[in-house]
Design a protein around this nucleic acid. Structure first.
Lengths: 344, 344
DNA sequence: ATCACGCTTGCATCCGTATGCAAAAACGTT
DNA sequence: AACGTTTTTGCATACGGATGCAAGCGTGAT
């Protein structure tokens, strides 16, 4: 206690930019460095008054624990890797923004990795290991099962976002109910009286495209209808949607695109290239609900992914895993919501 | 050398997921841990054969230096923070993607921070300090001069991307020649024969909006023309552009929007709300060249920012600063290119 | 009053790598 | 062959905090 008022024995005025360390703070308070450490560890064995005293002094001296050192010692970095491809699809930046915010709010930081579209996220694993990230959120890409097993070795978590793994997997995943969304799309088109339906697939190897297609098919099959026409765009891009729609012009009166960016490309092709009017000649439905779909030039009917809820669930899952609350891998499916606009 | 063939004295089969350390690798080779460290430090004092031997063994055993430990020891993390706001403006995800790639290629990782639009990046500084990031790239946000001075204390670098600081500043910045772009916009509109020009500002406190406006004004002033009408959208968003254009409908025959996302909103307002045709009744020019501007629904004439070059320059600047190649702060200005499409 | 027990605290050590310094080895010179 | 240089190598320690363990303290029960 005396230490508070005693002048520090030759405390050198620290140069700006050199951070205060726990040891220095401890010396200043006349306590041990352990106490400083414990003051900042929730649940540690420390008297409430001591903690308050340390925290107050930390505030005064501008002490902040060095996360790097903590990571080394605790073998936990509080860093979450976000692996993304397709940042050019506007759906993902929105996800990224919210995810980063949610992680920051949970005391975690986001290290961003990008992979070329279509590649599995496996190529990032060595880097992730090097950076000792605690967890990884993989979105717009997937992980091979070999990669998954390699990763989930010890206490490290992984969540697939907007993707599901094929077959049994040890990975958690959060996505929206793509099957249900596909059905809803079919129902909406049928309700409009469309009779010649078509589906435009994105990348054929993605669970999103596959599930949406399966739901779409299932709804038709239940009504005893023929399966829809099918075009594979090959890619989740405006240009791919544009090409796909040109191939369908005149052959369908209701098109369900695997996502919005495809649908926007499709809409433009139908209107500007094929000279058709939407929704009179052909109805169009997309998936995601990206902002541009709502613009007057498009007024795209679509299925909205509950991004906020998906992000929240993702962070919850991560924290549970990191906290050691094990349990079997979970596959969360949040419902998609039909947003009726002009295009259908 | 003998160690290579001698069986390890009771080397426990390491559990999967626990990484090999430099010490273990060293023991395996019968050399000191320092040698392993030096084998991985370019320019360190080590015999070429020794380095080769260590690297080969590292490959075999799957050793990768622990970046966290290295960061602690060297007081350098090889992590660059990217501070962003406005991820919903499609220009920035594109920047982010390329920046991350370029940094990865330079052996740096990107830690992503988001700040609310309009806020200075200062609120991130404590976190940046905690994470001991080496450098920060600030885009779609700025830093107060107090924040800048605080940050540039010791060896830490900062680059403003697509922003310039007001007044003298110790910060490097990379942006495109917004003034020149503004002039080019004016010239293009005048060349079309527009006589009632208008400028739509974004956030008034951003250097991008200000410089583009100043260039636009300057070109008009040089020709002895009156200054343009001016509307302040208040925000770089589609909706803001929409509102601004409605206010201008009928009062201008050539509008320069501070960026593309504003211009797209404006275009839709002019066409769908005001019933005007573009470019017949009113010509429109944007800035950035986001992908959507090229879509058939818009065909927006715009000024293209040389993103790839800007990113490359940014990474160069960062590396120079981190390498200690000091020099006075630089302000890089890369030329914008007029992309002629239908809207003007 | 005595003892057992629980809560606080400090001590010592560890996390995995980098690096200054001194010892050792390799090389060139006269 | 002896000696001065220049490389290479190993040793020891620092980086900043976390944590198991034992010592110190205060409490209640007997």
């Amino acid at each position: 206690m005396a230490a508070r008022t005693q002048p520090e024995a030759a405390a050198p005025p620290r140069p700006a930019g050199v951070p205060v360390t726990a040891r220095e703070l401890a010396r200043h308070l006349g306590v041990s460095q352990s106490m400083v450490s414990r003051a900042f560890s929730p649940g540690a064995s420390i008297a409430p008054e001591m903690r308050a005293r340390v925290l107050r002094a930390a505030e005064e001296l501008g002490y902040r624990p060095n996360v790097i050192a903590a990571a080394l010692s605790r073998r936990r970095s509080s860093i979450v890797a976000i692996v993304m491809a397709e940042l050019t699809n506007p759906f993902y930046p929105a996800v990224l923004e919210r995810l980063t915010e949610a992680l920051q709010a949970a005391g975690l930081q986001s290290l961003l990795f990008t992979v070329p579209p279509g590649q599995p996220a496996d190529s990032c694993l060595p880097l992730l290991r090097q950076y000792h990230v605690d967890a990884v959120v993989i979105t717009s890409a997937s992980l091979t099962s070999a990669g998954a097993e390699e990763w989930l070795g010890d206490g490290r978590a992984a969540v697939l976002f907007n993707r599901t793994a094929a077959g049994p997997t040890p990975l958690d995943s959060v996505a929206c109910d793509n099957l249900g969304g596909g059905r809803a799309a079919a129902e909406a088109l049928l309700a409009r009286g469309c009779s010649r339906l078509a589906f435009v697939a994105g990348r054929a190897d993605t669970s999103t495209s596959q599930d949406r297609e399966r739901g779409f098919h299932a709804a038709l099959a239940e009504r005893g209808l023929l399966p829809p026409l099918r075009v594979e765009a090959g890619d989740f891009s405006y240009e791919a949607g544009h090409r796909a729609a040109r191939a369908l012009a005149g052959r369908a009166d209701g098109i369900f695109f695997a996502n919005d960016i495809l649908a926007l490309g499709g809409l433009d092709a139908l209107r500007h290239d094929a000279g058709l009017s939407v929704p009179e000649d052909v109805a169009v439905i997309g998936f995601d609900d990206i902002p541009m779909g709502a613009w007057p030039a498009y007024r795209l009917t679509t299925l909205r992914q509950p991004v906020a809820a998906m992000v929240a669930r993702t962070v919850e899952l991560l924290r549970a895993r990191l906290g050691g609350t094990a349990g079997p891998p979970r596959s969360e499916r949040l419902p998609a919501e039909l947003v009726q606009r002009r295009s259908a």
